[in-house]
């Protein structure tokens, strides 16, 4: 295991597109070679070394490369995007597209992340200690095949559009969410431990959602069919079980319609 440490030295005037900050790009490179990797600021191509000091060489493969960014990356996009293995730890905030299109490995952001984290994610683990903005684990515009696998855990709250057009994988938001959870989803699991304003499971075809807090505005297309006990993220709760979205098309399995499931924690 080799650890590459990046220390931010300068805040970009615009935003730095750090698409090279992945274990895949760092693997097999020396610290000097890593510092020479490209990134865009607007239309100009700059080097990682202009914004970070780099210490430590990359491992032989992505899987044995750990990246630690020791500082704030609020103005650095694409950290760990498209990575397949290894790990990235940011001791601070990160900007958009953290872990976007990621296929494997681990990302740990100790601060907050901006929008589009885990967009089109296929595998791996993304952990955010703070809050996330909008479009967590959602599909890229126009793609009806969203997140396919992996796990996203946001320890804080999130904005809108969680798991849009999701097909698989798990998203856990430990605090509140604004609107649009699993919109258009055809699979996957979303767990929200706080409250949601509304639009939970709109146009949803298949998949599961768990809400441990309250939903302020329930969609009319969801119908309660019973009460169940289920284990969620290591704890057991009693849930009101809803199915929906009854306004949307649904496939059949063994002659029965398959609906999406919403498990809303039953009032004690």
């Amino acid at each position: 295991m080799a650890t590459v440490t990046l220390k931010p030295t300068k805040v970009p005037e615009l935003i730095f597109e750090g698409y090279s900050i992945t274990p895949d790009a760092f693997a097999g490179k020396t610290a000097a070679q890593i510092a020479a990797l490209p990134g865009h600021e607007g239309k100009f191509v700059l080097k990682l070394g202009e914004f970070f000091t780099v210490s430590g060489n990359g491992g032989e493969t992505a899987a044995d490369t750990d990246i630690v960014i020791d500082g704030d990356c609020s103005r650095v996009k694409y950290i760990g995007s498209k990575m397949t293995a290894g790990s990235v730890t940011v001791n601070g905030n990160a900007d958009m597209y953290v872990g976007g299109w990621m296929k494997g490995g681990k990302i740990h952001i100790k601060g907050n992340v901006d929008s589009f984290c885990g967009i089109q994610m296929e595998g791996g683990e993304l952990l955010v200690d703070g809050d996330a903005k909008n479009h967590v684990g959602c599909a890229y515009r126009g793609d009806w095949r969203g997140m396919k696998g992996g796990t996203i855990r946001i320890k804080g709250s999130a904005g809108n559009d969680i798991g849009t057009a999701m097909l698989g994988g798990t998203i856990i938001i430990e605090k509140d969410v604004f609107i649009h959870v699993s919109t258009h989803a055809e699979g996957g699991t979303v767990i929200i431990k706080g409250d949601v304003e509304g639009r939970v499971g709109g146009q949803m075809v298949k998949g599961d959602m768990y809400v441990l807090g309250k939903i302020k505005f329930m969609l009319p297309g969801y119908k309660k069919i019973g009460t169940v006990e289920k284990e969620v993220d290591g704890a057991k709760y009693t849930f009101d079980h809803y199915i929906g979205d009854l306004g949307e098309r649904h496939g059949k399995s063994k002659g029965q319609y398959v609906y999406a499931n919403l498990y809303l924690k039953a009032a004690a």
Partner: peptide, 9 residues
């Protein structure tokens, strides 16, 4: 959004 959903349902 809720109203569209109601119409469709």
């Amino acid at each position: 959004y809720e109203l569209f959903n109601a119409f469709r349902t």
